[in-house]
Design a protein around this nucleic acid. Structure first.
Lengths: 119, 119
DNA sequence: CTCAAGTATGAAAAATCATTCATATGAAGG
DNA sequence: CCTTCATATGAATGATTTTTCATACTTGAG
């Protein structure tokens, strides 16, 4: 650890009723970000996202098998991911094909893994 | 059932037929990533990270005020962040100064917010 | 040594989340 | 229709997290 010893120590007594951080970005954006992260913060769901990221769109059943999940469990997790708009679903005959909602999702997943790999 | 694969690393589940994910990603890395994301996936904690990212190192008390948290609550959340190694703490007199553990953390926070802002 | 400021900790209640099992829906084929 | 495959849903239980309150620790001042 390094010592700050500089201006940082001076900053604390500013009059901020409820905090700048609380206001400087919309509460909605922060909530959305939390929802996004919450949806990713689960082993099975992260696996699903990773599988979609690396192998492309897959059916619910294929994802279940790829990730070692029971059918029902997979479906529940996929619903969480869908609700959080991390994945999109499309029916194809009997199957339902899932894909990542956008590139940003893959980006965050990869960043998180990269960070984890370092530490 | 799972069968003994080559000893070595303890792989919790191996149900991926010829899975890229199975090989290229250790179960440990995935768990670490989940821990990282879990620690960020909370409104108060994300606010703390954001405050640290945008305003630099702060004392526990300053963070509490910036984020609109009670002392005890802030301390509990800071412990979660510390345990997950997202922040580092350093004592300075009576105060304890927190800072982001590394740039990767800020990166992920900003990515998540960027994504949230879009959708 | 005593006190106050700044922070941390522990325990218990409350809230949220995960897992499982059973059942329901919807699509295609006979 | 009836059956079967593929997927979703709901309810119940168990586990984990959050929140709050009270209290303890540490440091600098006097």
């Amino acid at each position: 650890m390094k010592r700050p010893a500089r201006a940082a120590l001076r900053v604390e007594r500013e009059v901020l009723p409820r905090g700048i951080a609380a206001r400087s970005l919309s509460a909605h954006a922060l909530e959305s970000a939390v929802d996004l992260l919450s949806a990713m913060a689960h082993p099975a769901r992260l696996r699903v996202l990773l599988a979609l990221s690396r192998r492309g769109p897959q059916s619910a059943g294929a994802l279940a098998e790829l990730c070692g999940l029971e059918q029902s469990a997979a479906s529940h997790q996929l619903r969480v991911l869908r609700d959080a708009r991390l994945v999109a679903a499309e029916r194809d005959g009997k199957r339902i094909i899932y894909r990542l909602a956008d590139d940003h999702v893959a980006q965050i997943v990869e960043d998180a893994l990269a960070h984890a790999a370092e530490g």
